[in-house]
């Protein structure tokens, strides 16, 4: 009748991921994701590593470098937020350093993505159903 108390059923990959993240800096055991992009970036780094794009130690170093740069700059703010942003910076750094992603093309793509919402008109509430199929 009851499920398995909401535990993730994918124990295999879960353990795999745990092994990867346990030695990363600043990371507590409770990974907090406040926004979709944070989870997406998290999974992207692991997927790219697992696909053989870079050794995990490269990502680790990039993450540490990003955090160090930030600490040096004396930035304050939301720690969890910053952490995921460092995470993103680290993926980008590794991909660009290994010539896997062209930084100019990336910047262009970022602008494309940012330009899209304006045309999409999806920052307005829609108060009525977008479609109704009346019963007969």
């Amino acid at each position: 009748m009851r499920d398995s108390n909401g535990q993730p059923d994918s124990v295999g990959p879960g353990e795999e991921v745990k092994a990867l993240v346990q030695n990363l800096p600043l990371l507590s055991n409770d990974l907090a994701f406040d926004e979709p992009w944070q989870l997406r970036a998290f999974a992207l780094a692991i997927a790219a590593h697992k696909s053989g794009q870079y050794p995990w130690s490269d990502f680790q170093s990039a993450l540490i470098a990003s955090i160090k740069g930030w600490e040096g700059a004396g930035e304050v703010g939301d720690a969890a937020w910053s952490y995921h942003e460092h995470w993103l910076d680290a993926i980008q750094a590794v991909m660009v350093d290994n010539d896997l992603v062209d930084v100019d093309l990336l910047e262009e793509r970022v602008r494309e993505v940012l330009d899209m919402p304006a045309n999409r008109n999806h920052h307005e509430p829609h108060y009525e159903p977008v479609a109704v199929d009346p019963g007969c």
Binding site: L44, S51, L88, Q92, L105, R109, V110, L114
Partner: peptide, 19 residues
């Protein structure tokens, strides 16, 4: 902006067959 960067990076990596 950050979300857009994740999306951009992800889409490029997928297109290039990296993930």
């Amino acid at each position: 902006e950050i979300a857009a960067r994740v999306k951009a990076l992800e889409s490029m990596m997928i297109e290039q067959g990296l993930v």
